[in-house]
Write a protein that binds this DNA or RNA. Structure first.
Lengths: 185, 185
DNA sequence: CTCCATCTGGTACGCAAGTACATGTACAAG
DNA sequence: CTTGTACATGTACTTGCGTACCAGATGGAG
């Protein structure tokens, strides 16, 4: 549907192509995991020939790293909204708990982040990436609590994240609000 | 080295063999991840021919599930020690923080547990397994705090676990103790 | 226009994987 | 001892993978 000409050949657009590939890879990480990523899967999803994936990324590790970096950027962008919401909040713990509930609304997010954690555990070059979200959260929370409290709250939220992954019940919002209140002093 | 006869053929011992395969698979999950598991890898590590792995486990999913179940059992067994240590402790949060620090001493444990989480996220039949450790911890903590506090503390420890995975600095023990004190009321 | 680096698209090669299977061996029942 | 069943072991088959590579198209520089 994006093909401009019926001859089946795509217009020349290197940057757009690279972006489409990265985005497709990002989607697939959520669906099949980092380990499940293959050139062919990405190419099919992105609507490009197989060769394109190896042309733009020297190896599959490169490709997955690019995908994870892209996903991380999206997560960080989401944090800006958190910062804004907390800025004008009278009850920071309650607002934070609500934001987390929304965040977990689609399992995909939690899965993506945990995938990033395990990938980073085994590939040191990904560690900074895996720290980005948590560090950003701590930075935001530092405006509303002492550094130690901010770090503790961020750790708790990470725990809540992985908990949500293996449980079907929705998040216990009042309990989370209470815990955050305690940690943020 | 375990071969009793120099003819190269193993003695007949179905249960022992099954156990050796499961244990080898458990080790490998820690080294290469659930997704990195292969029949050949397991067979080589267990010192059995390739065919043995498919004889005892109908599919690779069966095999990895058995390995994860085995690992979970070991983790739960470790929890008994936690229960005993907390039983006779004057400062429960401090003791708990110390136990966690020991637990994280080898990255393997943290990795194993996180691997289990992501595997369970994608394979519902593994979810009960993934909940086992956390539920056990909550049960133990319930003896020293209210249910809500116990659950919060368990979530925090899960968060600390994944944090440790992507950071090189050792655990901040005093901070963890303080946080646990707040959560356990 | 000509030329050439860059991009596109298809195909091929070598390899490792899951799984099936055929054959051989031990052990207990009869 | 014979026999049948459960186990042991090596090999073969098919599939899908990463990656390399070739040939054509494109579009700007000179």
């Amino acid at each position: 549907m994006n093909s401009p000409a019926p001859d089946g050949r795509s217009k020349r657009d290197p940057e757009g192509r690279r972006r489409k590939i990265v985005e497709a890879a990002g989607q697939l990480v959520g669906e099949v995991g980092v380990a499940g990523l293959t050139h062919r899967l990405v190419a099919a999803r992105a609507g490009v020939p197989l060769g394109a994936t190896t042309y733009y990324f020297t190896s599959l590790d490169d490709l997955s790293a690019a995908a994870l970096r892209h996903l991380t950027e999206e997560m960080v962008a989401g944090l800006d909204a958190w910062e804004a919401a907390l800025e004008g909040s009278a009850d920071v713990p309650a607002t934070l708990a609500g934001l987390m509930a929304d965040y977990l609304a689609d399992r995909g997010q939690a899965l993506l982040e945990t995938e990033l954690y395990v990938a980073a555990a085994r590939r040191p070059e990904l560690r900074p990436l895996a720290r980005t979200w948590g560090d950003g959260l701590v930075r935001i929370l530092a405006a509303h609590a002492e550094p130690a409290g901010a770090r503790a709250a961020a750790a708790l939220l990470d725990g809540v994240l992985v908990h949500a992954l293996v449980r079907d019940e929705p998040l216990d919002l009042p309990a989370l609000r209470a815990s955050l209140t305690k940690l943020l002093t």
